Computed example of a mutant assay.
Amino acid sequence: MELTTVWFVLIAVLWTGYFVLEGFDFGVGILLPLLGGDEAERRTIAATIGPVWDGNEVWLLVAGGATFAAFPEWYATLFSGFYLPLFLILLALIARGVALEYRNKSDSTRGWDRAFFWGSLGPALLWGVAFANMVRGVPLDADHEFTGSLLTLLNPFALLGGAATVLLFTLHGAIFLTLRTTGELRRGAARIARTLAPITLLVVITFLVAAGGAGRPLRWAAVALAAAGLVGALVATLRGRDGWAFTASAVAVVAVVAALFTGLWPNVLPALDPANSLTVTNAASTPYTLTVMTWVAAIFTPLVLAYQAWTYWVFRRRLTGAH
């Protein structure tokens, strides 16, 4: 397998890890005003992700760094053309991080809770908009420079993608809360999950089907797996099997990301004019750079995965108001 293919797959894996882990963080933040009836419940909701949210964001940093090093042309075009949406995501992530750190150090938490909510909803929406545009294709000239505007990115298909990711992450967060809380909080999260699952299934599958991909059996297998994961999450939630529900929800997120990236290949950023598209070939770094990066990834990736797995194991118990 060529190193360009290896790094395309590795970047897809990094985005998958980010959306699986940060996805339920976003969902928890979106659900805070819906489930948090009083300060004790809101504190418990925030505490479910308190020890892990910053570690989950490392996946985004590594995905961005890997893209910059392995496919610099892709990175340059993406971050210049999508500058405003990505800048808004950055501001939202900063606001959310500050809110999580300071809400317990302030006499009034209302403002921090608003920042937590909007700092979760904004990225959940904008990541869907960004990836929908990447799959659909954007206007690029012969120099691979973006020639559109913000309104170009806010097309109906992109907004459908944003709605799909908001619903998917909110459902993922609701199921995560059923796994990590007890009592009325858990029952409330389960009710939301049961309500959201059918809507999420409809919107996500509509989005993936609208993305096309004729003649790509792997992509359609991923679409089918996403549907199966969402159905499995609903069934497990109805039966009170929280662990299986979360596993099925995570599988659905993995399958959605797999469907997007298999739809991209061999492009990394398709253009409306196919002659100007960025591919794994014309956007890649030199073979030497990719070789060095491969050795670094082979050594350090298992260490990072082991540390993060240990973190989740330590903080695996359910939380109550007393915690």
Rank of each mutant, 00 (worst) to 15 (best):
T5E: 12
N56V: 06
V52Q: 10
V58R: 03
I205L: 15
D107S: 14
L60D: 12
T301R: 09
T77I: 04
W118C: 03
Q308Y: 14
T206S: 15
I94L: 08
S106I: 03
L179W: 05
E73A: 15
T182R: 12
R187W: 02
I192Q: 09
T67I: 11
L3F: 08
L230M: 10
L230P: 00
L264D: 02
R318S: 11
S80F: 03
P33R: 02
A99P: 00
I205E: 14
D25I: 02
A252E: 07
E101A: 07
L196Y: 04
R110P: 00
T195Y: 12
G23A: 07
I299T: 12
L121R: 10
L100Q: 12
G161T: 07
A283W: 08
P270F: 08
L168C: 07
R239L: 13
L177C: 04
F176M: 08
L230S: 01
A130L: 14
F116L: 11
D273E: 15
N155I: 07
G119C: 06
A174D: 12
I94N: 01
V254G: 02
F146A: 08
A226F: 03
F169L: 09
S108K: 11
R43C: 01
L208T: 13
T16C: 09
V13R: 08
P287T: 12
V209S: 08
H172G: 11
G148F: 06
S120W: 04
W15D: 01
A130K: 00
L167G: 02
L269W: 00
T77L: 02
A233H: 02
V268G: 07
L305E: 05
P217H: 06
R239H: 13
D273G: 01
V20N: 11
A174E: 11
A284F: 06
